[in-house]
Measured scan of single mutants.
Amino acid sequence: KEYCRTLFAYEGTNEDELTFKEGEIIHLISKETGEAGWWRGELNGKEGVFPDNFAVQINEL
């Protein structure tokens, strides 16, 4: 499994977007979303897309 840590808080504006606080760990599902600048991940049981410049991939939890 791949993970990323959020660098900033983000408020999702669409139903398919994740909302998160700074410093949260998102399970990274895919970097290929069909839309440049967006990754797909899962946080707190919800799957959605989020801007990749708001997070950095990490090697271990």
Rank of each mutant, 00 (worst) to 15 (best):
G23M: 00
A9T: 08
T6P: 04
A9Y: 08
N59F: 01
L61C: 15
R40Q: 08
F8W: 11
K46N: 08
Q57L: 13
Q57V: 13
F50Y: 02
E2V: 09
F54H: 14
N44V: 01
I25C: 05
A36D: 12
I58Y: 09
L28Y: 02
D16H: 14
S30G: 08
L43Y: 08
N59I: 02
Y10H: 07
E11Y: 10
D52T: 12
K31G: 05
A36E: 11
L61W: 11
T6L: 01
P51G: 00
E35L: 13
Y10C: 03
P51Q: 11
D52E: 15
P51C: 00
F54I: 10
D52W: 10
L61Q: 15
L7G: 04
W39Y: 04
L28G: 01
L28V: 14
F54M: 12
W38Y: 13
A9S: 15
P51H: 01
C4R: 03
W38I: 07
L43T: 05
L28P: 04
W39H: 03
L28S: 02
D16E: 14
G23P: 00
E22T: 09
I25N: 06
S30K: 06
E42I: 13
D16F: 14
I26T: 04
F8L: 12
G12W: 06
N53P: 07
E42H: 06
H27L: 12
K21H: 11
Y3H: 08
N14S: 13
I25P: 01
E42D: 08
F50D: 03
E22M: 05
D52I: 15
T13C: 15
I29C: 04
L18Q: 01
S30H: 03
W38F: 11
L43E: 02
A36F: 10
N44L: 08
R5V: 06
E47G: 05
T6A: 14
K46G: 00
Y10G: 05
K1I: 09
K31L: 05
P51S: 04
I58W: 09
D52G: 15
G45C: 08
Y3Q: 02
R40L: 14
T6M: 06
I25H: 06
A36V: 13
L18H: 01
H27C: 14
T19N: 11
T33M: 06
L7W: 05
A36I: 10
F20V: 04
I58F: 11
H27W: 08
I58G: 08
Y3R: 06
N53H: 13
E24W: 01
E2S: 11
W38P: 02
N53R: 15
E15W: 07
G45T: 02
N53I: 10
E35N: 14
E11L: 07
R5D: 02
D52Q: 13
E11C: 09
I25E: 06
T13Q: 15
N44E: 13
N53K: 15
F20R: 03
G34F: 05
V56K: 13
T33D: 08
F20G: 03
D52C: 14
N59W: 07
K1L: 08
G34N: 06
E11T: 09
E32T: 11
E17N: 02
W38E: 01
F54E: 03
L18C: 00
G48L: 02
G37F: 05
T19V: 03
G34P: 10
R40D: 04
L7R: 08
K21C: 10
I25T: 10
A55K: 00
F20D: 05
F20H: 04
E11G: 07
E22L: 02
G48T: 00
L28D: 01
V56Y: 07
E42M: 13
Q57A: 13
I58V: 14
G23S: 06
L28Q: 00
I29T: 09
E32L: 05
A9Q: 12
Q57F: 08
T33Y: 09
E42R: 12
V49P: 02
P51M: 14
E47I: 15
W38D: 01
E17F: 05
L28N: 04
T13E: 13
E17I: 00
F54N: 03
A36N: 10
E15V: 08
L7A: 08
E42W: 08
E15M: 09
K46C: 13
E17L: 02
V56H: 08
T6Y: 03
F20C: 01
E15R: 11
K1E: 12
K46Y: 07
E17R: 05
E42A: 14
F8S: 13
T33V: 11
E17Q: 15
G45Y: 01
A9H: 12
E24Y: 02
D16G: 15
G34Y: 03
G45N: 07
F8R: 15
G45R: 03
S30I: 02
A55T: 11
F50R: 04
K31V: 08
E2D: 15
N44Y: 07
I25K: 07
Y10N: 01
R5T: 07
E60I: 06
E24L: 04
W39M: 08
N14T: 13
E42F: 04
K1R: 08
W39R: 04
F54Y: 15
T6K: 04
G41L: 02
T6V: 01
R5S: 05
G34M: 06
R5C: 06
I26G: 01
A36L: 08
Y10T: 01
G41Y: 00
